[in-house]
Simulated scan of single mutants.
Amino acid sequence: MKNEKNISILKEMAESVRICMFTTFSTKDEFGSRPMGTAKIEDDGTIWFFTNEYSLKSKEVSKDNSVLLVYSDPSKNTYLTVKGDAELVDDRVRKESYFSPFIKAWFPDGIDDPRLILIKVVPHTAEYWDSSSSKIVVLFSTLKALVTGSTPDLGKHDTMSF
Rank of each mutant, 00 (worst) to 15 (best):
M1W: 07
E4L: 04
E4F: 03
N6D: 12
N6V: 06
I7V: 03
S8D: 11
I9D: 09
L10I: 13
L10G: 09
K11P: 08
E12Y: 14
E15V: 01
S16M: 00
V17W: 08
I19P: 02
I19H: 00
M21I: 11
F22R: 07
T23H: 04
T23R: 12
K28I: 07
G32T: 05
G32D: 14
S33L: 14
R34K: 09
R34Y: 14
G37S: 08
A39M: 00
K40L: 02
K40E: 15
K40H: 07
I41K: 12
E42Q: 12
D44P: 06
T46W: 00
T46E: 06
W48M: 05
W48P: 02
F50H: 05
F50G: 11
S58Y: 06
S58Q: 04
S58K: 03
E60S: 06
K63L: 14
D64N: 06
D64K: 04
L68E: 09
L69H: 11
V70K: 10
S72R: 13
S72P: 11
P74L: 08
S75W: 01
S75D: 13
T78P: 05
Y79D: 13
L80I: 07
V82F: 01
G84P: 13
G84R: 03
L88R: 01
L88Y: 00
V89S: 04
V93I: 12
V93Y: 03
V93R: 05
R94H: 08
E96K: 15
E96H: 04
S97D: 15
S100C: 04
S100D: 14
F102A: 02
A105N: 05
P108N: 03
D109T: 00
D109Y: 01
P114H: 11
L116A: 02
I119M: 08
V121Q: 01
P123T: 12
A126D: 07
E127L: 15
E127K: 10
Y128M: 01
W129E: 05
D130Y: 08
S131C: 03
S133F: 02
I136V: 12
V137K: 15
V137F: 10
V137D: 11
V138K: 11
L139R: 13
L143N: 06
A145T: 08
L146A: 05
G149T: 03
G149Y: 00
S150F: 00
T151Q: 11
P152W: 09
D153P: 10
K156M: 12
D158F: 00
D158E: 10
M160H: 05
S161H: 03
S161N: 12
